[in-house]
Design a protein around this nucleic acid. Structure first.
Length: 490
RNA sequence: CGGGGUGUAGCGUAGCCCGGUUAUCGCGCCACGUUUGGGACGUGGAGGCCGCAGGUUCGAAUCCUGCCACCCCGACCA
């Protein structure tokens, strides 16, 4: 079982290892940097998937699936894209094993592949190669496709949920007839991500543009949502890229316009991953474990019976089942944990660790008094409510807890966002307080690079809603017209 | 790939310097009984190629050599 957790731990990896094993979320698989997501953790991911998928479909997107393996040659077609991913690809070179004569197996040297296959680190290349065949006319556009898949990136260092070797994600890839339409799509998707983060994950995010050096390999513009974790570090939670005509040109994807002219299509891509699980944990968890926002909790309410002997169990179960039906009828996801193998106290801790928003305890005393004990995960408070009103109270609570979690996270972010005017101040805040720092920047890669080298802080984004004001770069003193968002990042 | 560290039961560990009974303890697991409103208690039990391979020795978890794996810190990244 998980040990006492340390809030705002310097070392979240350790926290995960303590937390997730107990919370049945994930564990290391034994394969370098890969994770096993256990059923409870996966059900949270499924909930995220379902909501995102709904939002994608509501905006006209369709799901499709492309191959896991990508021929090596596909990667030579878009130069900056290759530079971005070449160093972290898993490569399939053979297709067969054979007996090694020592009771084990070896790679059969005779089974070498003519052309190596790359395990997709992202699917731009194979998708654009396919789009060439699908797109001929403006009538084929826009092409709005999303894929739910796993990808592999052989990172030097991994961190559970945040940077695993294999991770699950969705990647949207769209093709448009005009630049304006593609830009609008890029912006629409970053807005959807922000909406999802705030309304479902109860995680406030800052929408912005990446600086040139942080941009996606092959993109002209990268939009992102950035969130602040409880330890004062920033986490990129989602990205949406405007790819211009780079991929269309690299893969020769042309269409004939209404006017009969040939032109390259305009592209976007956008994605979020199981990193969101990490974001969720690091945004809301406390020393008692995970705290789930009701909108994503697989079980929003758990009912724990308290009884001594079969007779009491029967009595309590009757009420519990009634309450469960009432709640279900109101659309609440509720579970009645009548396992006889664990005691109530054990269950209380279990569900706190798992982050279930509301816990109802029903015992003989309650049956007699017409009451139910209600405990909130977000505030860790308990109260006794009337059995007749419990369904209505719970319905209201779902909303309240969702809002409260958001508010808590938003307050934390506000307290840990600092505007600075000088480099001294910048370094000082970074060292003593951490968090988001808003500062003027002269817009050059050189300045960004120097700040990164000297302080380890990077430009998380240029916020879309940054107010325009005259100022001077904290490092070079050159003019700047808005403050950008700096932080140490995961 | 550089620097540091760790591998002992499902998990967490003691023992290792200084070699010597049947490898320690806690949690968890199984059985029985008593328990059940915040992680119950008692009694009994199962579970180990001490990371792998080799060496030194009468004798190796312990010493030596090689290998492997994992973790942490850098460079890289969603």
């Amino acid at each position: 079982m998980a040990k006492k957790l340390t809030k705002r731990s310097e070392d979240y990896s350790k926290w995960y290892n303590e937390l997730v094993i107990g919370a049945d979320l994930a564990e290391n698989s034994g394969v370098r940097g890969c994770m096993v997501i256990k059923p409870y953790g996966f059900s949270i991911w499924e909930k995220m998937q379902a909501e995102l998928d709904r939002m994608f479909k509501e905006t006209g997107h369709q799901n499709a699936y492309f191959p896991l393996f990508i021929p090596k040659s596909y990667f030579s077609k878009e130069a900056s894209h290759v530079d971005g991913f070449a160093k972290e690809c898993a490569v399939v070179t053979h297709y067969r094993l054979k007996d090694d004569g020592k009771g084990g197996v070896m790679v059969d040297p005779d089974a070498k592949l003519e052309e190596e296959l790359i395990v997709r680190p992202t699917s731009e290349t194979i998708i654009w190669d396919t789009y060439r065949k699908w797109i001929q006319s403006y009538r084929d556009l826009p092409l709005l496709i999303n894929q739910w898949a796993n990808v592999v990136r052989w990172e030097m260092r991994t961190r559970l949920f945040l940077r695993t070797t294999e991770f699950l994600w969705q990647e949207g890839h769209t093709a448009h007839a005009t630049k304006e339409e593609a830009v609008a799509e890029t912006e629409q998707m970053v807005n959807i991500y922000a909406e999802f983060a705030e309304n479902f994950m109860a995680m406030p995010v800052i929408k912005g543009l990446k600086s040139e050096s942080e941009r996606f390999a092959g993109a002209l513009e990268t939009y992102c949502i950035e969130a602040l974790m409880q330890d004062g570090k920033a986490l990129q939670a989602g990205t949406s890229h405007f790819l211009g005509q780079n991929f269309a040109k690299a893969f020769d994807v042309k269409f004939t316009s209404k006017e009969g002219k040939q032109d390259y299509v305009w592209a976007t891509s956008w994605g979020v991953s199981t990193r969101l699980m990490g974001a969720l944990i690091m945004t809301h968890s406390d020393d008692n474990g995970l705290v789930l926002p009701p909108n994503l909790a697989p079980d929003q309410v758990v009912i724990v019976p308290i009884y001594r002997g079969d007779e009491q169990l029967e009595l309590v179960s009757k009420v519990a089942n009634e309450v469960m039906s009432e709640l279900k009828a109101k659309g609440i996801r509720v579970k009645f944990d009548n396992r006889d193998t664990h005691k109530p106290g054990w269950k209380f801790n279990e569900y706190e660790l798992k982050g279930v928003p509301v816990r109802l305890a029903i015992g003989p005393r309650d049956v007699e008094n017409g009451t139910i004990e209600l405990a909130r995960r977000d505030t860790l408070t308990k109260e006794t409510v009337s059995r007749n009103e419990v369904a209505d109270i719970v319905v209201d609570l779902m909303d309240e807890i969702q809002k409260n979690l958001y508010k808590k996270a938003a307050n934390y972010r506000e307290e840990n966002t600092t505007e600075v005017e000088t480099y001294e101040e910048f370094k000082n805040v970074l060292e003593t307080k951490g968090g988001f720092i808003l500062a003027h920047w002269d817009g050059t890669i050189e300045t960004e690079e120097r700040i990164k080298n000297e302080t380890k802080a990077t430009i998380r984004c240029i916020p879309l809603d940054a107010k325009v004001e005259e100022g001077t770069c904290i490092l070079t003193g050159k003019p700047s017209n808005k403050k950008v968002l700096f932080a140490k990042a995961y």
